[in-house]
């Protein structure tokens, strides 16, 4: 294909990426250096509230925004790296590891580091489980009789089809309070099982839920890839006396390797942005993720304002984290590509 033709083909997609990805990203980056403040004035105001059958009026000094044409007057201030500093709290980090500091226990009190700890655990623990479980289902299905394959594929894909928040909510209701499954666990173990009272059980639930939800994706990719394994190679392996395990180890897995990298790439990107589970399981008291941190900064606080600057900083940091995680895989893919080419 001529370069010129190629450029024309990719032009629409490049244009859309510029408008919908690059520009917003640049804007978020820009906003992470600013803070918008409202100008307040001290005024003495009499305000009346209903008491019980009587009214209580109080005159007090209140800070009220200065309104001009019915709108609050605001000022936008360049603050440099201040938003990043407030999110990452390097000072507290240094203090935690200085003599007399509380070490890791202190670090976990800073939302960003607490969120990073959970996000990394979540991403890195679910990754092998998703790939492993997907592989097992795919291999099992590949040896199942043909007439059963359709129904099994359908059932295995179900978790992936369910909207994550809906899935998380329904699982939550199975486990919270006297939920069906908690009651069943109590009956089975004879212990008073309470899933939402401590951090680690919630973390187990969150991780298990994600594996259950995403494994079908890995499974369907691997299953498709299994259909393209070179049958001649497999047969000659059988002739050479290779055991079932050896065939898997030396023929099938090498063939699946690029697909595993693909699944790993997609899963890392998705898992690092974990959010639905935190909301669905109301886990925020115990665990928060980086994406949840950005969300909570963006939500209006009790005075109706949003911490846009800090939210922008936090989302830039999330993006940097994803890129850092993906680099090893991307380098590998790039190398493979060039070796073949």
């Amino acid at each position: 294909m001529k370069t010129r033709t190629l450029l024309w083909f990719v032009a629409p997609s490049v244009a859309l990426m510029l408008v919908f990805i690059a520009l917003p990203l640049a804007s978020v980056f820009w906003q992470s250096f600013f803070v918008t403040r409202t100008l307040f004035q001290e005024v003495t105001v009499e305000s009346c509230q209903p008491g019980f059958l009587t009214q209580t009026c109080t005159t007090e000094l209140r800070s009220q925004p200065i309104l001009r044409d019915g709108k609050p007057v605001t000022e936008r201030v360049f603050v440099g790296w201040e938003n990043y500093r407030l999110v990452m709290r390097p000072d507290a980090l240094v203090a935690a590891f200085s003599p007399g500091g509380g070490g890791w226990a202190d670090v976990r009190q800073i939302d960003f580091w607490r969120a990073l700890r959970f996000t990394l655990t979540f991403t890195l623990v679910t990754l092998p489980l998703v790939i492993g479980l997907g592989l097992v289902i795919a291999l099992a299905l590949n040896t199942a009789i043909a007439s059963l394959r359709g129904p099994i594929i359908f059932v295995s894909l179900l978790p992936f089809i369910i909207t994550p928040v809906v899935g998380a909510l329904s699982i939550r209701w199975l486990f919270i309070g006297d939920g069906i499954l908690t009651a069943a666990l109590r009956w089975l173990t004879g212990e008073n099982v309470i899933m939402f009272a401590q951090g680690w059980t919630i973390e187990v639930l969150l991780l298990t839920y994600r594996v259950w939800h995403v494994a079908p994706f890995a499974f369907i990719v691997f299953y498709a890839a299994l259909q393209t394994v070179n049958q001649d190679t497999l047969e000659s392996a059988v002739v050479d006396g290779a055991s079932r395990f050896e065939r898997l180890r030396y023929v099938i897995l090498p063939h699946l390797a690029p697909f595993m990298v693909f699944v790993a790439l997609i899963h890392l990107m998705d898992a690092y942005r974990v959010f639905d589970e935190i909301v669905g399981f109301s886990a925020q008291a115990h665990h928060i993720s980086l994406q949840w941190l950005t969300y909570s900064l963006l939500m209006p606080d009790g005075s109706g304002s949003r911490a846009i600057g800090r939210a922008s900083a936090s989302s830039m940091l999330t993006m940097i984290g994803i890129v850092a995680l993906l680099i090893p895989l991307l380098v590998r893919t790039w190398r493979d590509h060039h070796q073949k080419g």
């Binding site: 009220q64 309104l67 019915g70 709108k71 609050p72 209006p300 005075s303 109706g304 304002s305």
Partner: peptide, 12 residues
């Protein structure tokens, strides 16, 4: 509720 009036007043 009593406190949710404040943001509305602040923003006019």
């Amino acid at each position: 509720a009593v406190n949710s009036l404040v943001p509305l007043l602040d923003q006019g």
